[in-house]
Simulated assay, not measured.
Amino acid sequence: MDALDDLDLRVSGCRACPRLVDWREEVARTKRAAFADQTYWGRPVPGFGPPDARLLIIGLAPAAHGGNRTGRMFTGDRSGDVLYQALYDVGLASQPTSVAVDDGLELYGVRVTAPVHCAPPDNKPTPGERETCRPWLVQELRLLRPTVRAVVVLGAFGWQATLPALAEAGWRVPRPRPAFGHGARVGIDGSDGSVRGGGPEGLELFGCFHVSQRNTFTGKLTPAMLREVLSTAARAAGLGK
C-alpha cells in the first residue's frame, strides 16, 4: 500500500463532524427509491486517481446519492456525468461515464478530490466542516507535491478551501489571495521555505464553475466551457492534447 492509498483508507474512516456523520449514514439507511436494492457506501469518500497525478480537480463534497452511494467522487450522479464526459472528451479519462467503483474507469494523470469528504445536507457543508476536513486535503497535496503541476477548482467554496490548503502544504499563495472566477488562472510559486527537505514546484491554479445541476441546466456552465478549462489546465500540467 502506498502513502496515498493509506491516506484514502484513513479518510474513509473519519467521524470528525457529527452532523455529516449522521446525515451520510441516514441517507445510506433510507436510500433513494431508485437505488433501494443497493448497499450505500455511507462513509467519507476518498479521492480518486493515480498517485502521480499532474492535474488535481477539487470539487465541493460528495452527493448524497452519488459518491455517498458508490464510494467514488463524482460517481453515480448528474454532476459526475458532466465532469467525466468532459475529461473523456479532452483525453484524460478512459470512458465518458462513471457509475460504480468497478466500472473500469481510469483517469490519465488526473486525480479528483474534494475539500469535504462527507455528503452534507442540501449539498451545503458549513465553513466549520470545511476547516475540520482541511487537514485531509493538505496531506493529499503534500503527497502529490512531486508531480502535481495544475489544479482545477470547481466553485467558490472549493476555492476558499484550496488556497489555505496549498499554503499549509508548502506553496507560496499570493496575497491578497486571488478571487474565484470562472476562467481564473493564478500562478502559485513553489516552497514558502517552511517545508523541510525542499519545497514543491510551482503550479497553475484554475477556477471553474461547479458542475452542479443548477449551473449545467441553466447554461451557466456549458460542456464547452468545462472542456476549455480542463484542456488548458491539462496543457499547463503537461498532459493531454
Rank of each mutant, 00 (worst) to 15 (best):
L4I: 06
D5V: 00
L7W: 00
D8M: 05
D8W: 06
L9F: 00
R10S: 08
V11M: 00
V11L: 08
S12Q: 10
G13A: 13
A16G: 07
C17F: 14
R19W: 01
L20F: 02
V21T: 08
W23Q: 12
W23G: 03
W23H: 15
R24I: 03
R24P: 03
E25P: 10
E25I: 14
E25T: 15
E26W: 15
E26A: 15
E26V: 15
F35P: 03
Q38C: 15
T39Y: 12
G42N: 15
P44Y: 05
P44K: 05
P46R: 04
G47A: 11
G47C: 09
F48C: 11
A53D: 02
L56E: 03
L56C: 04
G59I: 00
A61Y: 08
P62T: 09
A63Y: 02
H65S: 03
R69F: 02
T70L: 09
G71S: 04
G76L: 03
D77A: 13
D81G: 14
V82H: 01
Y84H: 14
Y84I: 11
Y84P: 01
Q85I: 01
A86E: 05
L87S: 11
Y88G: 13
Y88W: 14
Y88F: 15
Y88K: 13
D89G: 15
V90W: 09
G91S: 06
A93C: 02
A100K: 14
L105H: 03
L105Y: 08
L105K: 04
L107M: 01
Y108P: 07
Y108A: 12
V110I: 10
T113A: 01
H117S: 08
C118F: 15
P121D: 01
K124D: 10
K124Y: 11
P125K: 10
T126Y: 01
G128K: 07
G128L: 07
E131L: 13
P135T: 08
W136G: 00
L137A: 04
R142W: 07
P146G: 05
V148I: 05
A150V: 10
A150W: 02
G155W: 02
G155H: 05
G155M: 04
W159L: 06
W159N: 01
A161I: 04
L163Y: 13
L166H: 07
A167C: 11
A167T: 14
E168M: 05
G170T: 08
P174R: 11
P176R: 06
P178E: 11
F180C: 05
A184D: 08
V186S: 04
G187H: 14
S191E: 11
G198R: 13
G198Y: 09
G199L: 05
E201Y: 13
L205I: 09
L205D: 06
S212R: 09
S212G: 00
Q213S: 15
R214L: 12
T216F: 04
G219L: 09
K220V: 02
L221G: 13
P223Q: 12
P223Y: 11
A224F: 10
M225D: 14
E228N: 12
E228W: 07
V229W: 06
S231E: 05
G238T: 05
G238Q: 00
